[in-house]
Design a protein around this nucleic acid. Sequence first.
DNA 1: ATGGTAGTAAAACTA
Length: 261
Amino acid sequence: MGTFRIATFNVNSLRSRLHIVLPWLSRYEPHVFSMQETKVVDEKFPRREFEELGYRVFFRGVKQHSGVAVAVREDPREVSFGLSDDGPPDEERLICLKLPAVTIINTYIPQGRERDDPQFTYKLAWFRRFRKFLERFFTPQEPLIWCGDLNVAPENIDVHDPKRLLGHVCFTPEVWEVFSYVKAWGFYDVFRKHHPGETGQYTFFDYRVPKAVERKLGWRVDHILATEPLLKKSLHCTIDMGPRLAEKPSDHTILYADFAL
DNA sequence: ATGGTAGTAAAACTA
């Protein structure tokens, strides 16, 4: 099918970010566009705007927070939401699209608040539940992409100040451990394949930090991971800073990758 | 050591 482009973007309210999302789709023409923190209930989702650009769009949202969506240029064979186990379904945190050539899993992983907060325990459990989800429904030999805001910066080079940030809920050994446990099922970091050891590459810059972008005070917490058969076919993986520098920016950037499929 | 900003939505809560 040629080049297959997939992008992921934590929009921090989709309706407030359409001025970034829609022109980006027109310019970059990704096959798949994954969104997190849409912050919109399904009845108010801006479906028409995506359809006018030639995308079908699938989404699940709740009031105020979270919410995931995927826009795609072809009809999926199947769409599902949530972790499908005995725990809270969290349909507004996981959307899975089976396309003819590849399956896309887009997640907004719980942030965790503080390490002594029950939400942090929930976050760690979420990763373990996600590995069970993988074991139950997929194999590492099939073409699978896991992308989204994973709320983990995996290595020292993925944050601007590893000493000071050590112990943050997105940068602490307990989270590295469960993230490694999920990756060990069969996922590889597509960005790191193309940028080994490269520093200063971030996808998130906190609004609350003054001049965070120009001072390079970022985190790499948004990811595109792929199973081995797809990793081999990846052509590049790139962070587009545009969305973080735009008028009314999101606090996240857009991460995108191309695959030769 | 705290607070800084932005979003939703109408006072806090989330990140």
